[in-house]
């Protein structure tokens, strides 16, 4: 089988379709990005720096990084464990497990926040007990982390599972017959074979974790300087008509998104063969 090579659009129909595609991507996708960068730079460099240096904004940036630093490694370890048991063994209920792993892709981020309120909120299952023992989960760091984990936990697993399925178990079984122990097999055979896909999954997971809005919005409580992540800080600034400051913060996240896209493209181009063929976000 051979795929058809791409060619320069020559026929009128081809040129027409190309123009439609370029116009639509420009209008729907690029224009919002341009707006962010334009609005952020409208007042010049000084208001921009002043907005970013605002203590609440600095706190929001730190909180965003902290949440991602907790959520992403946990999800990476989960992704590896899930991919290992799903692709290396047969067991009952595997299909159900795979479906559950996919669930956050279709679930509303608001639901991903709501469920934690139902468990740990003031009126939640454990609300009274938590208040008695003075433990804070929602409207505090643990809630933000839990909501972020729920939204981002499939990213690494979904990257690794198709790849490890494709690669099969031959090399690992061979290593076993040569006397390798469990961790030897993992660190010396499996990990080198999946490292780029793992990095790719971690990249997507991190981008989503830092940008998550809906889920954390529900559990945050919006306490300025304390439980506001950067996306929540943007909301507050924008709603208070501090447009320049809001877009200054937004441009930081937009820059992060552009870096993500760049790294993603580099990984896809450089290590195409070592990433899963079938990608789904």
């Amino acid at each position: 089988m051979r795929a058809r090579p791409a060619e320069a659009p020559k026929a009128a129909g081809a040129i027409g379709l190309s123009l439609v595609a370029v116009f639509w991507l420009g209008l729907i996708i690029l224009l919002p990005l341009v707006t962010v960068l334009f609005e952020a730079s409208k007042g010049g460099i000084e208001p921009f720096l002043a907005a970013v240096a605002e203590p609440d904004t600095i706190a929001a940036i730190q909180l965003t990084l902290l949440v991602a630093a907790i959520a992403v490694p946990l999800n990476a370890v989960f992704g590896i464990a899930a991919a290992w048991c799903v692709t290396r063994f047969e067991f009952r209920g595997k299909g159900l497990l795979l479906t559950i792993i996919d669930l956050p892709f279709t679930i509303s981020p608001v639901i991903a926040g709501l469920v934690w309120m139902l468990l740990f909120g003031a009126q939640g299952w454990f609300g009274a007990w938590l208040r008695l023992n003075d433990i804070h989960i929602v409207f505090a760091l643990p809630g933000l982390v839990l909501a972020t984990i729920l939204v981002t936990f499939p990213f690494v697993a979904r990257e690794l599972i198709p790849l490890m399925n494709d690669q099969g178990t031959d090399e690992e079984v061979a290593a076993r017959t040569l006397g390798a122990r469990g961790w030897d097999i993992f660190f010396r055979i499996t990990l080198p074979n999946i490292k780029w896909a793992l990095l790719y999954g971690v990249l997507l997971c991190t981008a989503r974790a830092m940008g998550e809005f809906g889920a954390v919005s529900v559990v945050s409580g919006h306490i300025r300087g304390q439980t506001n992540t950067l996306p929540l800080q943007i909301e507050i600034l924008y709603n208070q008509y501090e447009s320049v400051a809001a877009f200054a913060c937004a441009s930081i996240l937009a820059g992060l998104a552009l870096i993500t896209l760049l790294l993603k493209s580099v990984l896809e181009w450089r290590f195409a063969g070592e990433l899963a063929a079938n990608r789904r976000h």
Partner: peptide
């Protein structure tokens, strides 16, 4: 399989 100390040559070779 690890303890038997057999040398196995796989059909696909299974080279690392």
């Amino acid at each position: 399989a690890r303890e038997r100390r057999i040398g196995m040559v796989f059909q696909s070779y299974a080279l690392f």
